[in-house]
Structure formats: C-alpha cells, structure tokens
Design a protein around this nucleic acid. Structure first.
Length: 970
RNA sequence: GCCGGGGUAGCCGAGUGGCCAAAGGCGGCAGACUCAAGAUCUGCUCUCGCAGGAGUACCCAGGUUCAAAUCCUGGCCCCGGCACCA
C-alpha cells in the first residue's frame, strides 16, 4: 500500500473518535493496558512489542462490538528522568541528536533541564510513537506520575494502605551513595556508573577473644566451620583498627570497620599493628580452644573484616597455606579437626566422586583433584574451594557435637543464629565488586533504622493474593504456575526513599518520597479518573481521600466540593471499566510489578473487581541475545533501528505483523530486518489477492461450496485464537492459511467472483486487528464506515459443507500420492507427462476397511480367518474371497498410522472426472481417464487396480518406464 | 544452592502420545517472468527408492506403550530470577 496512506487512516480513526473509550451501559467492555514505560530515553523498536499485542487485542474486541479502553501514561518516578535531564544539560551528543531528529525547538528544549518537564516531554514523545505505530490509545488518559492529580491519587492510596494495616516500619539495609542518597544496584545501571552486576554477600562475623578482653572479628561465609578453626589469618604486616560498639572492643581491618559502622553504628578507634598480636592466642567460640594468630598472603584486607578463620580440613586455601608455615607454627596448630562428612548414601556425580579420591583431609583431596599434579596456583585453590564448598553444603552432615548429624545447610543457619544471639557477632554485608554511582562516588550498604515498608509478608494479605492468583488468567500459562512461588518468597518492601528522586511525598512522613515501584501498583484504576481531569471536569484539588474512597470503594459520601452527580458518574465509570481484563508487560515485571499490582488490588478492592489477567511478553534483543536499553539501542548504525526509522522503512503494518508472528509472546527474539521485509512482502501479496478477488460471477459450484466451507472453518478458528489471546496463532491463520486457501481455489479452477469476493470481505475485516492500515485501504468503499469500527463476520455467514471439504481432502490425498510417485521417477530423469489412468476402489473394500478399523480401535487386528468367517454373511465380500487375504495383509498394518477417516464418503469417480482438467494442468499429463476397478481390466496392463483403496484410488502412468520395459530395452 | 524455563533440520523458531519427516520465516537449489539485475511467482530443500514406499532423526542413555519430539528415570549442557531494579 501507499505509505502516505498510513497517516490518512490514522487521522480517520482519530476523526471518528475510535480511540476514546466510551461507557455504554449494557455493552460488554474490554479494558487492558501495557504497563507504563519509565521515562528514561527515546524508544527503540523493542518497546513497541507490548503495543503489538495490546492494540490488536483491543481492536479485536472493538470489532466484536465491545467498548474498549487502552490508556497510556508514563512512569516518571525515580531517577531515570533525573538522569536523562542531567544528560541533556551536560550536552550528551546522542541525546541532542535524538532531539534534533525530532525537530524539538529551542522553547521546548529550554524546559528539559527540569526533570519533571523532561519526563512529560518523553511521555508525549512515546505517545507520538505509539500513535504512529497505529495503536488506538485513549489520549484523555495520558498522565505522568509527577502530575499533581496523580500525586493526590497516590496520597490516597497510601492512606488507604495504611488504614488497611499494610504499612510497617522497620530497620533495613540499603545501597546508598554517601553523597547522592539511595541507589538501585542492578544490571540496567540506571543509577550507576559501574558495578551494576555486583552481588551482595552476607558475612557472619565470628568473635575470637583475646586474653585482654578485646575481640578479633573474623568474617566468614561458613560459620559452621568454626568448630574446625586451627588459627586466625591476617594479612602480613596488616594494620587493624579498633571498632567500638556498645561496650565491645573489636579488632578488624579498616574497610571492614567502616562497613560495620555503616551497618551497626559504633565508632572507629586507634590502630593496632597485627604484628603486635603475633604471640597472642585467641579463644574460639563454642569450644573455647586457644588458637594462634598467623599471617597469610592470601588474606585481602579490604574484604570482610580482614581477619579470616583458618579451617585446613575443609578450606583448600587454608590447607594450601599450611605448607608455607614454619615447622614451629605448624606444631602450634595441631591436627586439623574434621567436622563434616559426606553422606555415604548420597548418589554422587562423577565430578563429586573425583573430589573425594585419595587420602588426607577433604581440602587436600579437593586440591589434588583440581590441580591434577599441577601447581597450587590461585585459580586451582579457588576452583577447589568452590567445588568442595558446594559438595559439603549440599551433601554434607556435621560430625561434631552438638550438631552431629545435622545437614551443613541447617547447621550454618543455626551456628550463625547462636553467634548472633550471644552478642559480639554481626551480619556484615558487602558488594562483590566496587559499585560507583552516576556521580562517581562509591556506593555503600547502610542500615536505615526507621524505614517504611509495605507489609507483603503479612500472611493474611499474602493468602488473599495467592487466592487471586489462582483465579486469574496468565499468558503464558507457565507464569501462573510460577506466581505462587514468587509470592511465597515475597517479603516486605521498602516503599519510601530519600534523595533527588521524582515521585510523590509520602503523606505520612513528607520527609520521604514514595519509591517508584510502590506508586505504580494501582494506577489502572486512576486512568478512569484521569479522563475527567483531562476534560476539565475535575481539578486536582477535588481529588481528596474522601473522593477516592467513594469512587473506588463506594465508601462514605465523597468529597463535598464535588458535584454529587459528577461523583456518581466517575464511580459508574470506574465500575464499568473495572475489573481490568489484562495487564500486559515485559517479563521484567514478573517478579516485582505484577506481584505488587496483585497485592495492592486485593487489599483495596473487593473480589469482583480484581484483575482478570496478566499477559507477559519477552524482549526484543540485539545480536546474540543482548538486552538492549533505551540509551544504547537507538544509536546510529545499530542493528536495532529507532522507532521512527523503522516506521519510515516499513510502515507500521509489517512491523506489527512481524512482532505478532516472529515468536511466541513469551520468547525473546532478535530483531531481524529481513523478516520484517518478508512480512512486508507477504502483506503486499495479500493486498493483491484481496484486490483481485472481487467479482460477480460464480465459479464451479462444488468449488464455491468448498471455499465457503473452509472460510467458515478459518473464521471459527481465528476467533477462537483471538479469544484465547493467541495472536500468533490467529495471525498464522489470517496471513498464512487464508492466502493459501484462496490460491488453491484458483488453482483448482475457481475464478474471481462472488465466492472469492465473500472471502475477501471477511478477510479484510480480519486483517484489521493486526494490520489495520492495510485493512482500511482494502476496505475503502466496501464498508459503510471504517473497517476498524465494523463488526467481524461470524461463521454463520459461511455455509459449512462437509461434502465439499471431504472432496477436496480426497483430491489432496490423490495429489500427494501422485507427487510421491512422480518424485521417485523424476529422480531417475524420466519424463513427467503421459496418460494417467485411475482405478477407483469397489465398495467391498470400504466394508473390509471398516472392519479392520474396528479392530485397530480395539487394538487387536482381526485375523484373516475372522474376516473370512464374517464375510460369509456379506455377499459383496464373499464374491472377492480370493482377494481378501492379500488385501488384509497389505492394508492391516497401514491403518494404525493413518488418521481415522471422518466426514461423508466421496463420490470418487465423479470427483476425479471433474478434476481431470486440473490434474492435466498441474502435472502436465496428456490425458486422464477414470475407471471403476470392476470395469478397468481392459485398461490395466500392469494390474494396478488391485492397489485401489477407498479414498486412495490406484493409478497407472501409461508410457512411463517400468522395470519390464527397462529390462527389455537393456 | 533455591525457584522457573529450556536443548527440534544450515540458522531462527512452532510443535505435549498416533493426522509428525515435523508449521512459519531466513538461508540454499531449480523453474517462470525479465535485455539483465533486483523484486515477484511456482516447486524442491534428512537419506535411499525402476510406483504412492522404506530407513534414520527432535542433546545423550535407559524405560513405559501396539505407538514417543511429546510421558517416566538418570546424565550432560544452556538460559532467567533470587528481593527492592523501571
């Protein structure tokens, strides 16, 4: 189609007010949305995927005569808009180029230094892109989460949650930049310069008392090995510091002390040289043994506390370090105690067995297994450690009292708990690598003493949400099975932050700003209200708690200042659109957004207003499956085109079809321009087929009947697919199957006429949900209004003829058989033309096959003897007694793997005769003759007629090489 | 480790007990059209086959079944999430 027509149709839809959701009492409605995007940069084609599902679904429902609403907003909360705005101010070249491409003028640019304005700008930009993609978004819903009315809504939401007991206060560990405030440490590095992939490790610190009352704190991930400590390690020449906490005096390395202060308070005192401790001994917890403090180059003072427990029996690094000790020191250690043994019953993998081979301490054996006779370098030690830790953690049991027999997994927790309970032990969290914030500061983990949480661990709330999960529909269904375990793990989440974020001030304590995830859990309800604000019928100051309590929950009298009937109207509107039919979002939402969305709804609304469905889609990735982000994706020359470039190159319809068909919705897929090309070609092919299909004449009646009948079939299946939100399957029917049906109609001798015109009309309508522009173009002049606002055809408009379908299936089978024979001979370079003679099976064979089929269904093939006996009562069979045994032998085994025949019997002779011309055209035969088996003898030099089966006529290709003639020629 | 999902033809990717030698796309081959290229259309694209068939095949090894890509057991390998991240 002419690309310039795209804008024309988009204007036509706008002009008809199609996108505007209307409440029509008595009409069914469909309300679904795409989880709103964050305002972090320009979109690339990957971001269109959600709308590639949402818009077709809405269009489908609209064409069922339902009222539909597809809202749009932008999630401006948090840091992304702040960062983007700062990048603008800093003159980021890619960003400026993006602005230039979009023709953003100086006046508009002047506002972008304000993060809130930047968020609004990006929101309008996204809206423009989605509109250009053909999505019918109701723009009266458009909002950002930093609009005043939205903030009023969020304030109500938090008051309501508090009243419902959903907010609690507790202390909390958070990643914080000491200068800029809290940051999110995650791979997207939205808030960070580097270190987004850092993980948090939780050390247990184990206290070892010196005789003078001071305590060394060793940091460990394996507190259960405290029973096997032979000594402590510190770095050679290390300097420790004193950490004063409550009444305790602890010795640790400086960076560890700094972390302890962040996480547990206290203060750092004077320095202590580790060499001064050289001749001291410390007392181990639990056992009270005296062990020495030794130096070891493997100790990294910046990790943990810089003090390490040595457990030579189970830690390869410690075992390896023994070799470096003087004989005198080694004597002081004594024999390393064994604490853990591997369950002898456990079935070990070969790699696990390998670790245990040989003699000596477990750590020594592991070292030998990994080193294989080679040197004990750092990598070897690390690998041995990793493998032994895993083995003992999974399969090991403690051998020392009081934990003898306890699995290591449990012992670890119990030891840590007992140490903590005894005091003088602390949990110490740290990153596995340095994390640097956007402004270049090192991010730390800090304890925040008074933090507000959403109390998602509340058993009653969780149970209610689980109950909701059991009722909702998810796509893919796997996600529904996964959700209960996600909720199981779901704990309290902090819902406020401090820092330079965008968001809404926490109404209970305005010092805080509500955290971005927490302010985007219930906005689906607010979109309905937003339309009234947009239309000027409500003002932000009207939106009080009383107002929302009434509108969303029917409680109280509402807000006095707002007109009563207006308030009732808003309430009615809310009750009309709710419950939400689908929340559509990328798979990144599976573990946070979707769960909290469900949580919030269960707490705020009654059962009948709970969401009905969640639709999860995968990502569009760059080459090699790389996730693409907004900041890198749209760059020049990349494989992932910017949205505008893609729309110019292909237009929206090929992209929309590509998205729907390219992969299952839940799959990620790599953007592939050549596949969009293919979609475009397919669409122009379809356009031609539809345009050529019109006409008034009739084709051969049996073919027209077939075309109507298969149209009945595909309409039924396409509707079913849409109803089940299986857009991909629907698209396969509409864009792959229908054209091939129409082509077959023509191939078989149908001509453009009334029948193909009926199909084309129905087809045009079904093209509309996924490729709406093309559908309008094809429907222009053929429908009273726009195609997009027409009703889809029903199956009743097309008569189903099983006879016609059976006839064509029969012919299909005949063709397949012919092709198989021709293919074999083509390979020998034989000519394909000649005379074709059919021999149609006699009815007695059908009777015989039905008997055999009965046997197959009972899973016991009748014997020839049974058949012969039974045939005595059937004259038409007994006349062929001589042929029966051979036939049974040949066909009996085949039946099992053949489909059960269905549909009415076909008049094979008449059908083949009617298809003579077709077969001549298609295969290039000189002539085609059809005989009943019984009359065929004079025309059957090779005795082929015996092969005839019901539905599978025998045939003979006259004038072809045969073994006999070949032999004669040779 | 825990939870979840996987390993399908040259590639991507459908497919959950028989209609599966396996949709669709890409790539490849042949033919048509064309001065030619491109585009488009048609057919083919595991192996063998002097007749509509046979053999082998959906990570590997076993098993259940009349029948397995599909169910079960074991193994090897891969991916995602694991908590505050929109």
């Amino acid at each position: 189609m002419d690309p310039s027509r795209v804008a024309h149709w988009q204007e036509a839809w706008a002009g008809a007010g199609l996108a505007r959701g209307r409440r029509v009492p008595g009409h069914r409605k469909f309300y679904a949305l795409v989880a709103y995007p964050g305002s972090s940069g320009f979109l690339h084609v990957g971001h269109l995927r959600g709308y590639a599902y949402a818009d077709p679904l809405h269009r489908y429902h609209r064409m069922l005569g339902e009222e539909v609403l597809l809202p749009f907003g932008v999630h401006a909360s948090g840091l992304p808009a702040v960062t983007w705005s700062r990048r603008f101010v800093d003159g980021d070249p890619a960003l400026l180029e993006g602005l230039a491409e979009r023709g953003v003028d100086a006046a508009a640019r002047a506002r972008l230094g304000d993060p809130e304005e930047a968020a609004r700008f990006l929101g309008r930009e996204y809206l423009r892109v989605f509109r250009r993609f053909g999505a019918l978004v109701d723009e009266s819903t458009f909002l950002t989460t930093v609009d005043e009315d939205y903030r009023a809504f969020i304030r109500w939401q938090f008051h309501a949650l508090q009243a419902a007991g959903a907010l609690v206060k507790a202390s909390y560990f958070s990643s914080v930049c000491p200068v800029c405030g809290p940051v999110a440490v995650d791979a997207s590095e939205t808030d960070l310069q580097s270190g987004g992939d850092a993980e948090i490790v939780r050390f247990t610190t184990v206290p070892f008392r010196l005789d003078d009352g001071r305590t060394l704190l060793a940091a460990t991930l394996r507190p259960e090995t405290v029973f096997g400590v032979t000594n402590l390690w510190v770095a050679p020449g290390a300097t420790l510091v004193v950490w004063h906490h409550d009444s305790g005096t602890y010795l640790v390395a400086r960076s560890g002390a700094e972390r302890l202060v962040e996480q547990h308070g206290g203060r750092i005192g004077h320095e202590v040289l580790a060499s001064d401790l050289r001749n001291h001994a410390v007392t181990t917890p639990f056992l009270g043994r005296k062990v020495p403090i030794l130096e070891n180059t493997l100790v990294e003072p910046s990790l943990g506390t810089g003090v390490v427990m040595s457990v030579p029996a189970h830690a390869p690094a410690d075992a390896a370090a023994l070799a470096g000790l003087t004989a005198e020191d080694r004597d002081r250690l004594g024999t390393p105690p064994l604490l853990i043994e591997i369950d002898s019953q456990a079935a070990l993998t070969s790699s696990e067995e390998e670790l245990r081979a040989g003699e000596g301490l477990p750590a020594e054996r592991a070292l030998r297994a990994v080193a294989g006779g080679g040197p004990l370098d750092a990598t070897t030690i690390e690998t041995a450690t990793e493998r032994l830790y895993r083995l003992e953690f999974v399969r090991g049991r403690m051998t020392v009292p009081p934990f003898a027999g306890t699995p290591v997994k449990q012992a670890r927790e119990q030891v840590a708990a007992q140490l903590l309970a005894a005091g003088a032990s602390f949990e110490l969290q740290e990153f596995t690598k340095p994390v640097i914030c956007r402004n270049g500061h090192t991010v730390v983990i800090r304890r925040i003493p008074e933090q507000w949480f959403l109390h998602y661990s509340d058993p009653a709330w969780k149970a209610e949400t689980q109950e909701l999960v059991s009722r909702i529909t998810t796509w893919p269904a796997d996600y529904g099975r996964e959700l209960p375990s996600i909720l199981d793990w779901f704990g309290d989440r902090p819902c406020t932050r401090r820092g330079v974020w965008l968001g809404t001030r926490f109404p209970i304590d305005p010092e805080w700003i509500i955290e971005p995830i927490a302010d985007s859990t219930f906005y689906m309800a607010y979109f309905v209200v937003r339309r009234f604000v947009h239309d000027g019928r409500l003002r932000a100051e009207d939106l009080t708690d009383e107002f929302f309590e009434y509108v969303f929950r029917g409680r109280g009298e509402g807000e006095r200042r707002v007109d009563r009937t207006l308030q009732d109207e808003v309430r009615a509107e809310f009750l009309y659109w709710y419950p939400l039919d689908f929340n559509i979002g990328g798979k990144e939402h599976k573990r946070v957004h979707f769960p909290v969305f469900l949580y919030t709804h269960t707490r705020l609304l009654p059962a009948e207003l709970q969401p009905r469905g969640i639709y999860v889609h995968g990502w569009i990735t760059g080459p090699a499956g790389q996730k693409i982000s907004k900041k890198e994706g749209a760059g020049k020359g990349g494989k992932i085109p910017a949205t505008d470039r893609a729309m110019e190159q292909w237009g929206p319809d090929p992209l929309r079809l590509y998205y729907v068909v390219a992969a299952s919705p839940s799959q990620d897929f790599e953007f592939d321009a050549s596949a969009v090309d293919a979609a475009q070609i397919r669409l122009s092919d379809i356009e031609r087929l539809v345009r050529e299909a019109g006409g008034s004449g009739n084709g051969p009646p049996e073919l027209d009947a077939w075309l109507d009948s298969v149209t009945h079939g595909w309409i039924h299946r396409a509707r079913e697919a849409f109803d089940g939100t299986d857009l991909r399957h629907a698209a396969e029917i509409i864009y792959v199957e229908v054209p091939s049906l129409l082509r077959r109609y023509y191939n078989r001798g149908g001509t453009p006429g009334a029948a193909s015109g009926r199909l084309a009309r129905a087809w045009t309508l079904f093209l509309s949900p996924i490729t709406p522009h093309l559908a309008e173009e094809l429907g222009e002049g053929h429908f009273p209004g726009l195609v997009a606002q027409s009703l889809l055809p029903t199956v009743d408009e097309f008569h189903r003829s099983r006879t016609a379908e059976a006839r064509e299936s029969f012919l299909d089978q005949v063709e397949a058989d012919l092709r198989a024979v021709l293919r074999a001979s083509e390979g020998r370079g034989e000519p394909t033309s000649g005379e074709l003679i059919f021999y149609v099976a006699e009815p007695w064979k059908a009777t015989l096959e039905s008997w055999l089929r009965e046997g197959v269904d009972r899973n016991e093939l009748p014997t020839v003897r049974d058949i012969m006996t039974r045939s005595k009562d059937h004259p038409e069979l007994s006349a062929h007694r001589a042929e029966i045994p051979k036939y049974v032998e040949r066909v009996g085994g085949l039946l099992r793997s053949e489909p059960v025949p269905e549909g009415p019997a076909v008049d094979e002779v008449a059908t083949l005769r009617a298809a003579e011309g077709y077969l001549i055209r298609r295969f290039g035969f000189r002539s085609v003759a059809v005989y009943r088996e019984s009359e065929a003898q004079p025309h059957d030099p090779k005795g082929r007629r015996e092969r005839a089966r019901p539905g599978r006529p025998a045939f003979f290709l006259v004038g072809r090489s045969t073994p006999a003639t070949l032999a004669a020629a040779g």
